[in-house]
Amino acid sequence: MLLEVTGLAAGYGALPVLRDVTMAVGQGEIVAVLGANGAGKTTLNRVLSGLLRPRAGVIRFDETLITTANPEAIVSAGLIHVPEGRRIFARHTVEENLLLGAYRRGRTRRARNLARIYALFPRLSERRSQVAGSLSGGEQQMLAIGRGMMAEPRLMILDEPSLGLSPRLVDEMFDLVGSLAGDGTAILIVEQNVVRTLDLASRAYVLENGRIALQGEAATLARDPVLRQTYLGV
């Protein structure tokens, strides 16, 4: 497995958020993390990317222990977190945002990756010298993902990538995620859009009050009566 998490616990101050979380993501696999607001999805992402130190448990990435690694070491290893709410650098230009994405990569690879991203997102190429804050919501989400791709991720964590997008853009987004995985990048996707996400992912974990309440093949979970009732209301 590319990412292996065992017995993870984390929280803020006296408040425990995650308890005994055990999960894994394989090479090139798309895995979904589902859960209501406050279930601990964002905390899980913050721990995996090194922004928050776990209280207990072990995280391995490509056989290497990264439980207490710094964010820069985790980025260098190829685990890239595209944060919720896009978190682009609004006052930098589009191109500067992309270049910052490859901050830990050498100049030649940076130039090559930039050309690849521009070919994939022609709209970002047209707006390369524009300030990122002036882009539309959909373009900002493309930029956030493009910035993540600049770092040559082996595993990309996508936090609510469809949030605030129009239905047509949501389609484009899910197509894009599918093609990224097709190219060999593993994806850990955290989403509110349960139906679309289970359709795309091969496996899924359901977080409830900081614990994994349900897990399994995405196709099986999509038919699970408890899950359907909790998240789809049917």
Binding site: G50, E72, S76, R87, R91, H92, L100, Y103, A151
Partner: peptide, 16 residues
Amino acid sequence: RAVARESDAARLVGIR
């Protein structure tokens, strides 16, 4: 400039 505005996002691209 990235650290000035978005320090968490800066960490996530690997800036110390």
